[in-house]
């Protein structure tokens, strides 16, 4: 087993959850209703919980005595391997729910496959996370429907968000080298297996929500190889602020 590839693979899954949680955390206290604030925080908490499990395991695989926090807070931007989708900003609630929904559909399909991983730790993390992620998907899907099939204004706003975020969906299925080796080992999820299902599921809900399924075939990618959007540096300067300003301290 190629330890480096296993480590890279775990990090790429963990980073998705971490960065999405970070984006959701920015919203806490600023949502359109108290109920959505509470739900958004819940999702962020679930994602951080998963993230911690992945990083703890990755640190163990790496065997350099690093902690979950070293991995979460002390890497360079190019070393984060999250998809571009999760780092997109909270432009408005339509973007927040659109981003969440486009990720959640993928995330649940992913978790259902990770459950079958030959790696017992990853399978166990998936088992624990499936219930959480299916709740996230229901929540974000319901909001996409409400906003798509609400007022004329909300329909336009939701459509605008979906149209813009659509460009980041294809990257979810990219398989960098570490993924390919780990798929061959039966450890990683072969995301191509459910790519079609993903687009079917997403399209069905968008239609139900009275929204157009974007036809654009122009996709943007880069996060999985560490080439991020301009937003990422700002996310990290917030997130790493304490660890960078006060190195080697415990909190």
């Amino acid at each position: 087993m190629n330890k480096k590839h296993l480590f890279d693979y775990i990090i790429s899954i963990a980073d998705n959850s971490l960065i999405l949680a970070q984006r959701l955390g920015e919203l806490c206290g600023h949502g359109p209703t108290l109920e959505t604030d509470i739900a958004g925080t819940n999702i962020a908490l679930d994602l951080i919980g998963q993230t911690r499990n992945y990083y703890q395991y990755a640190a163990q695989i790496q065997g350099e005595g690093k902690t979950e926090d070293d991995l979460a807070f002390l890497r360079l931007e190019r070393e984060y391997k999250n998809v571009l989708l999760v780092e997109q900003p909270n432009e408005h609630f339509g973007y927040v729910m659109g981003r969440q929904f486009l990720f959640d559909v993928y995330h649940l399909l992913f978790m259902n496959e990770l459950l079958k991983s030959k790696d017992e730790t990853l399978a166990a993390i998936a088992k624990k996370g499936i219930k959480e992620v299916s709740y996230h998907k229901r929540f974000s899907g319901d909001w996409v429907k409400r906003l798509g099939d609400g007022t004329e204004e909300s329909n336009q706003k939701m459509q605008e968000a979906i149209d813009e975020l659509w460009a980041y969906t294809d990257e979810l299925f990219d398989q960098p080298e570490a993924d390919k080796t780990m798929i061959a080992e039966g450890v990683a999820v072969d995301t191509l297996k459910f790519k079609e299902t993903y687009y079917e599921e997403v399209s069905t809900l968008l239609k139900e929500a009275n929204l157009q399924v974007p036809e654009s075939k122009y996709f943007i990618r880069g996060g999985k190889t560490g080439v991020h959007s301009e937003f990422m540096g700002y996310i990290l300067s917030d997130m790493q602020y304490m660890q960078r300003t006060y190195p080697n301290m415990e909190w």
Partner: peptide
């Protein structure tokens, strides 16, 4: 967004929630 560790971030989120 600036909590110094994952544990603290989760606890703070939970508290504000």
């Amino acid at each position: 967004s600036r909590a110094p560790s994952l544990r603290r971030k989760a606890a703070l989120l939970a508290k504000v929630q």
